[in-house]
Amino acid sequence: MSRHDADLELALRLADAADAITAARFRAHDLAVERKPDRTPVTDADVAVEDAIRSILTSERPDDVVMGEERGGTLDASRVWVLDPIDGTKNFLRGVPVWASLIALVVDGVPVVGVVSAPALGRRWWAAAGSGAFASDSSGTRPISVSGVRSLEDAYVSTTDIKTWVEYHSREAFLALVDATWESRAFGDFYQHCLVAEGAIDLAPEAVANPWDIAPFQVLVTEAGGRFTDLSGVERYDGGNVLTSNGHLHEAALKLLAR
């Protein structure tokens, strides 16, 4: 038993509420899409999910703080729920089924509960500090763990969009990592970090990431036996970028990704 069991149970119920909204709006002909100031898209489903989760949290955890992608908030509190109502909104609005609702509870600056729910894929991942990491799909629920790959030349690496490396970090550094590995893909967004946690791929660096994009993965990947840091090697979800790995390859990847 973990002291975070009650919070994990609530987070899973929050994910159920999110799934009920997103599944109904996915591929809807009347889906409303707007642009935020940073020119990223937001759909009516994004806003509806965040509002629904906030309503439940107001009722069940009235003393907790909420930080969400669509409604904002602060991370400066002892207990903060960090929400991305739909991670992969571009996929969602184009009818691509690779998107998810991300829910994390951060206590004293450290994510201790993380849930990632991808109903169009029929998949969900979750973890609580000290309790291990798990995934579910049509075949049931199982514990998950990272891969045992120990050499970069055998590693499978994924990122979200190579153009972000040009703008936010270093395209050359990322390509150096790609050249050192066995295979590269762009599974992108939440999915690649979930694949690291379950051992399907070995490395997932991102040149730019908001706290709500990656908070659940700090607990999910570490509970699965891997490592989670920013690109400078600090274990934090609010550093503006991220590297998740199976742990064995982390330092070698950080060295290649250094500007």
Rank of each mutant, 00 (worst) to 15 (best):
L57W: 01
G140I: 10
A200P: 06
S117M: 05
A253N: 06
G73F: 03
H169Q: 12
T244S: 14
L243S: 02
Q192M: 14
E198A: 09
T58F: 08
L203E: 07
L254W: 06
I53Q: 00
L75D: 07
D19K: 03
A133D: 05
G132F: 01
E198I: 06
A258M: 11
A11E: 01
T222W: 05
N241M: 08
R79H: 15
A28C: 09
D63E: 15
V196H: 03
E183F: 13
A11L: 03
S136H: 10
A32R: 15
A186I: 13
A120H: 05
G132T: 06
R236T: 15
Q218W: 13
I53N: 01
A173W: 09
A45Q: 01
P216Y: 04
W165M: 08
V110F: 10
W125D: 06
A258R: 15
A127S: 10
A129M: 14
R71V: 05
L231N: 03
S101F: 00
I201M: 06
T141L: 14
R79I: 11
R150K: 11
E50W: 00
T229F: 05
A77K: 07
K255C: 10
A176M: 08
A155K: 03
W125G: 05
N91Q: 13
A100G: 11
I86H: 01
S78Q: 15
E70G: 00
W126D: 02
R79W: 12
E153W: 10
R236Q: 14
D46P: 07
H29N: 12
T43Y: 01
G109H: 10
Y168L: 09
N246D: 10
L14Q: 00
A6V: 12
N241C: 10
V33E: 05
V115W: 00
S184L: 05
I56F: 04
D84M: 04
N246H: 07
R123L: 13
A48W: 00
L257D: 04
F174C: 10
R185D: 12
F174Q: 09
R39N: 15
T22D: 00
E69V: 03
V49W: 00
W212I: 03
A32C: 10
A6Q: 14
D108V: 11
V42I: 15
V49P: 00
H248K: 08
A18E: 02
C194N: 09
S245I: 07
V82S: 02
V178G: 08
L256W: 06
R227L: 12
E69L: 04
I21L: 12
Y237P: 07
G95Y: 04
V146P: 02
R259Q: 12
S232Q: 13
F217W: 06
A45D: 02
R27H: 06
G225M: 07
D230V: 02
S184Y: 12
A258L: 11
V116M: 01
N246W: 00
A23Y: 02
G225T: 09
R71H: 14
A15R: 00
A6F: 10
A204R: 02
A118S: 14
G199Q: 04
V96P: 06
A173P: 05
T74P: 05
S147D: 08
V221M: 04
L10N: 01
A11H: 02
R79E: 14
S139Y: 11
T40S: 15
A176T: 09
S170H: 12
V107I: 15
A173L: 09
R171A: 11
G188M: 07
V234Q: 12
D238T: 08
V66F: 02
A120E: 09
V157H: 00
